[in-house]
Amino acid sequence: MNLAVIRGRRTLAALTLIGTSAAVVGCSGDSEPSAESQISAVVGQSFEFMAERDWEAVDSTQCRSMRSESPRVEESPFDDALASLRLDGVENIVVNGDSATANTRHYSTEDPSATMREDITLIKENGAWVLC
């Protein structure tokens, strides 16, 4: 086998090993994701759950005072509108201790060109960010 090919394979193997080691070290840290990324994630989950019409899961992303007290038995007149919403972004997240504000940018599947914005409030309950 050609010496250059052997050196190339060794170099590739070494780079692969270094990259894998860096990824393991980076992923094995105990650091918690930032509040901003947690907030973006819970807002995204809420929109996904609405699109799936999983209202119980939507409740899980909301603060205690906004959650339904009993399982839903019938459709709400707003279900279609809520299920049609798609998140386009979460911006201007401001964290102040265990509360935060953010702006959502979203649209309806009925008219994707009409972007809507909404100011939302979040709080941290039981160690997790929820919409309130």
Rank of each mutant, 00 (worst) to 15 (best):
V90Q: 07
A128P: 01
C63T: 09
V58A: 01
I93L: 03
S76L: 11
D98V: 01
P33V: 06
L82G: 09
E91C: 00
G97W: 06
A4S: 15
G127H: 02
I120F: 10
L131T: 08
T109S: 12
N103I: 09
S28C: 15
S34M: 04
S37V: 13
A4R: 15
R72N: 00
G26Y: 04
S65Q: 12
S68E: 02
A102K: 01
N92F: 05
N103T: 12
P33R: 03
T61I: 08
P71D: 09
W129S: 06
R117G: 09
S46H: 08
L15H: 01
L87Y: 07
T20D: 02
G29H: 11
L131C: 04
L87M: 05
Y107C: 07
F47R: 14
T20L: 13
E69F: 04
D30L: 08
G44W: 08
H106Y: 15
L87W: 04
L122G: 07
I120M: 14
E125Q: 11
L12V: 15
A57L: 12
I18Y: 04
S68L: 03
T121E: 11
V43N: 12
T61W: 08
V95E: 03
M50D: 02
I18K: 00
I120K: 08
I120V: 15
S21H: 00
A57G: 07
M116I: 11
C132N: 11
V90T: 11
P77W: 08
D79V: 05
R53Y: 02
G29W: 10
W55A: 06
R105G: 03
A102L: 10
S84P: 06
S84L: 04
V24G: 08
F78T: 03
H106N: 14
L3N: 12
L12H: 07
C132Q: 11
S108Y: 07
D111M: 12
V24H: 02
E56C: 02
Q38N: 11
S40G: 13
L85I: 07
S34T: 12
R117E: 13
F47G: 12
A83M: 15
F49H: 09
F78Q: 07
S60D: 07
R86N: 10
K124H: 00
E52I: 04
P112G: 09
T104Q: 07
E69Y: 02
A102S: 08
A13S: 04
S65P: 00
P77I: 04
Q45E: 13
A81C: 02
A81I: 09
C63P: 02
A13W: 04
V25W: 13
I6L: 13
V95A: 01
M66I: 09
G8M: 14
T104I: 13
E74L: 03
C132E: 09
R7A: 15
